[in-house]
Design a protein around this nucleic acid. Structure first.
Lengths: 95, 95
DNA sequence: AGCATAGTTCAAATACCTTTGAACTATGTA
DNA sequence: TACATAGTTCAAAGGTATTTGAACTATGCT
């Protein structure tokens, strides 16, 4: 029961994170480049303010769709494909 | 260009449709039973009002996640697995 | 006809999401 | 030290999403 609810919450977080055009574009961008990118670089590519970028990266991270790590002043972001694989590509198995 | 935008809009609709606990439960319910069910039956199982049910079914249908057809007074609903397969199961190919 | 049932539509209310700019922390550089 | 850069946090504003009840359409039943 508790397990089921937790699973649902994780799923909801992921679907909410993907239900936004900017965040979907960020995922596409990261998927194309296939290496770590700084938040600033992505923000510029998406034409969004740094505040807005910070908000979207937080949502993607809390959904487990990206991983991040800081190097000096910059925050680098990378796709976490395993989350997509677990919840999307294996949607029926997970349901 | 236009094609890309349309694809994104369809994706957004699907992710938004799935980003809600009630609608995810409806999908689970339909997946378990694996046959047509009336809106009323599902509404009762989900403990939601018929107005709320009507709203959620509309969103699921517009996302292409369910198909519906009316028989007399009742509206029957069925999972459309192909949409999930196209956009979730093959997420990376579609991106 | 008269009444019940299945579902829809509408507008109002509430709740949630996203953007914005200002102020902030932390780091790098002259 | 003084200034610049990368990113975060906050509260306010504006935009969407969801729920509710009342009124409605369409069908079935007696």
């Amino acid at each position: 029961m508790t397990q089921q609810i937790q699973t649902t919450e994780a799923e909801i977080k992921i679907f909410k994170a993907l239900a936004d055009p900017i965040r979907l574009e960020i995922i596409r961008y990261l998927n194309r480049l296939d290496h770590e990118v700084s938040c600033g670089e992505i923000g510029q590519a998406m034409h969004i303010s740094k505040t807005s970028g910070s908000y979207h990266f937080k949502i993607l991270q809390e959904a487990g769709l990206i991983t991040t790590h800081k190097v000096a002043r910059e925050k680098y972001v990378m796709l976490d494909r395993s989350t997509v694989d677990r919840y999307l590509t294996h949607f029926w198995q997970n349901l």
